[in-house]
């Protein structure tokens, strides 16, 4: 597989509801080709199936950022799956903040204008470019930065 210019320094774990537009197997493959190792895609039958553990495990094992894309509010095929997802994302954000990890490493996009998976993925990627690699995955670097900050005090 060829590396592309869009490959980011950080990795996004992207969970998405399979009911959002243009989110089939081919769409997924072309996104993976576009972003290479910078994106890991996880289709789920409904965002209501997303558990905080999925997000935590992603951050623990490989991702710098974890997002979920859900159907627009009021348009969940299973009535309230996306609302559940919203609450679980909020809870997970509180958990990572409680141990000193930036809350913005977890996000949710409720697909208001029914954009395609690719468009949403592009927007999310743009939104997170300012984030540094996760201190969970490169702890030495995080430690060093801490040390530098302390020296500056």
């Amino acid at each position: 597989m060829s590396q592309t210019s869009k490959e980011n320094k950080i990795t996004l774990a992207l969970f998405y509801c399979q009911n959002i537009p243009e989110s089939g197997k081919q769409d997924r493959q072309s996104l993976e080709e576009e972003y290479g190792k910078s994106i890991r895609l996880f289709p789920i039958p409904c965002s209501g199936r997303l558990e905080p553990l999925h997000l935590l495990r992603a951050l623990e094992e490989f991702a710098d950022v974890a997002y979920v894309i859900t159907c627009p509010e009021g348009e969940c095929r299973y009535f309230d799956g996306n609302l559940r997802a919203k609450k679980r994302v909020q809870r997970t954000r509180e958990i990572i903040e409680s141990i000193g990890l930036e809350g913005e490493r977890i996000g949710i996009v409720m697909n208001k204008n029914s954009k395609s998976l690719a468009r949403q993925a592009h927007e999310i990627m743009e939104n997170i470019t300012h984030l540094r690699p996760s201190p969970v995955l490169s702890p030495h670097r995080a430690q060093q930065e801490k040390g530098e900050k302390r020296d500056n005090c």
């Binding site: 553990l53 958990i95 141990i99 000193g100």
Partner: peptide
Amino acid sequence: MLASTLRIAAKME
């Protein structure tokens, strides 16, 4: 969840 959270915290340190 708690195990994962504690592992993340340990890794950060």
